[in-house]
């Protein structure tokens, strides 16, 4: 199910930092009821709940002001939240700003601290990429279209028209962006190689 790999990656990153699974995790559906977001939340729950994490999906908004205040209210009401997961890069960046204002933002470059909150996302944009590079966001999933089927279709077309076949396997699945490779992506974007 979608969301399983996201949760596994997030769990691994948090466990590396804290030495345990998060006590409480929140997943934000920025478009409440959107099927892809709902199932992603279910997939994340399937991974995190057996680890003892109190996992919850909450309804968000695409309006940044409302989204930020929903996150703020949720964090004030539930101070034990340790990770926030979003289905889009913008809510992740907005959540990071709120966490910074509240003095609760966890940074992967610093030792784990109780009470801090760590953020993961899906998709990326220049602002979130900068936050990943700075360690303020744990990571995100890059969903460039060529990694999700177009690449496969283009290679099939090459085979049909030119009998061209590449020799090795190519990863066409989601690509995880962390602090390790964020700088490279920023460079590629600046060079115009990718959006």
């Amino acid at each position: 199910m979608t969301g399983v790999r996201n949760a596994q990656r997030a769990l691994a990153a948090f466990t590396e930092l804290a030495g345990r699974a998060p006590k409480r995790s929140t997943y934000i559906e920025h478009v409440p009821g959107a099927w892809v977001l709902v199932t992603r939340g279910q997939g994340m729950s399937d991974v995190l709940t057996p680890e003892g994490t109190n996992f919850e999906s909450i309804a968000g908004e695409v309006d940044p002001v409302q989204m930020q205040e929903i996150v703020r209210a949720h964090l004030i009401a539930n101070p034990d939240v340790e990770t926030i997961h979003t289905g889009w890069s913008r809510p992740a960046a907005w959540s990071i700003e709120v966490l910074r204002e509240m003095g609760k933002l966890g940074n992967v470059n610093e030792p784990f601290e109780e009470g801090k909150v760590y953020v993961t996302s899906i998709d990326l944009d220049p602002e979130l990429l900068g936050m990943i590079d700075a360690g303020d966001c744990v990571g995100t999933i890059d969903q460039q279209v060529y990694l999700q089927g177009w690449y496969g279709a283009a290679l099939a077309w090459q085979w049909v028209t030119n009998q061209f076949l590449i020799a090795n396997d190519i990863s066409t699945g989601p690509y995880v962006v962390t602090q390790e490779n964020a700088a490279a992506l920023i460079g590629q974007a600046e060079a115009g190689i990718r959006a």
């Binding site: 009821g33 929903i70 209210a73 949720h74 009401a77």
Partner: peptide, 13 residues
């Protein structure tokens, strides 16, 4: 209403 429901622990939906 929006904030209060969150604080009361109701689902934000």
């Amino acid at each position: 209403i929006r904030s209060g429901l969150i604080f009361f622990g109701y689902s934000s939906y």
